[in-house]
Design a binder for these strands. Sequence first.
DNA 1: GATAGTTTCATACATATGTTTGAAAAGCAA
DNA 2: TTGCTTTTCAAACATATGTATGAAACTATC
Lengths: 229, 229
Amino acid sequence: MPSDQTRSAILAAAERLYADRGFGDVTLRDIVAEANVNLAAVNYHFGSKDELIAELFVTRSIQTNRERLNELKAAEEKGGGRAAIEDIMRALVGPTLRGCLGPDREGSTAARFMIRASIESVPPIRRIKNREVDHLRKFAAAMRRAMPGRDDTELYWGLHFALAMAHHTIREKERLLRLSEGKCDLDDVRAIIDRVVTVTVMALTMGEVPASKPARPAVMHGRLTRQDL
Amino acid sequence: MPSDQTRSAILAAAERLYADRGFGDVTLRDIVAEANVNLAAVNYHFGSKDELIAELFVTRSIQTNRERLNELKAAEEKGGGRAAIEDIMRALVGPTLRGCLGPDREGSTAARFMIRASIESVPPIRRIKNREVDHLRKFAAAMRRAMPGRDDTELYWGLHFALAMAHHTIREKERLLRLSEGKCDLDDVRAIIDRVVTVTVMALTMGEVPASKPARPAVMHGRLTRQDL
DNA sequence: GATAGTTTCATACATATGTTTGAAAAGCAA
DNA sequence: TTGCTTTTCAAACATATGTATGAAACTATC
């Protein structure tokens, strides 16, 4: 039975330091000092610095992906096998935004680490992100089921823009805060998710020829009540 | 009269190498080898590696910002002092997207450099980006003039989302291409700009109580013909 | 409690990399 | 030319940093 203690201490210390100071500024020596373990322990337990970073990122990514898929599944069950498009988008951006924003999240090391990973984009993390496409395909498939008539291209652009708004909000939240002089409330995560979802669904249904009634813009800050999808 | 030759050679070589291989993989020795100058020349002419990177980025940023402001000014003159919101957004995202996307841009070192800068986010560049807020305020002001009744918060979110979609498209164009299996045409820059602008204007006018006629979704891939702004 | 496997530790290794230096070369004005 | 400034150059510097090593400490099974 291997004593996980050292290993966990390294992981925790590394995540904390990377979250606080970024990947560029933190050395293995910083990490082992913080974790109170020997320098060689990192290579012993993880093989290399990059593998340590990769493990940190994979762990958090898996958590987010699992949350996403759980929400997607719930949405599909709710809709009797076919989830509503707004619920799909909510499942896509909700976990990430909830994980990285919000006032209580200031203390969450995991959240701050993921924000760093989103901003700095170091090689081992880039490699992992490239494999994320398979995960996104599941959402593309669900979207296709929700909007059967829609052209695939539109679906992909919608998915892409949803992630754009979510990730950019996380990446640039400081700038948005400064630009808006604090007027944009970045702690109200629920409202932000609503906003991103609403805009995305609008983009997705845009230009769609309505079956019977003409489409009209959804009301802000509330769930969309779309009639014919 | 200082011989600018060495200086320019360094700038050109650095931009080319950074564009091709990223900031993490290129050393000063790589750069001076490419430029056929002495290693010490970098510190002599620029002071430090970071200042070299900063100069590269500032130069390109100024170009983009100037293009943006020119387009904004043209839009305002066209509208008799008050630019239409879609023209403002077009002025905001157009130059960046045109600069970084498109088939002919593959060969453009400047474009590829800016994409790198957008992806890797190295410290000297981050510092410069933080000063970008002043520039964005000019667009916020123009938007406020175009949509006088609108709440400031909505304006900032619209501006933020427009940049989100533009930058994310540049950053993640490879992924979108793979996800969509080539279906999303990332070479048709004009269509992409239209798409981003359309979605943004939609987001901005969303929930707005129309003066007389009910707002309706704009037609895709064309200029918006909005009646009452 | 001896043996084998696992983990920890201090230390050394290698070396990549930005920066500095001091002299030589080139340019330029008088 | 002479003298001054600017630029180039080879070499050295400093040192941060990931990784490897080999012995010691620890753990568990028999």
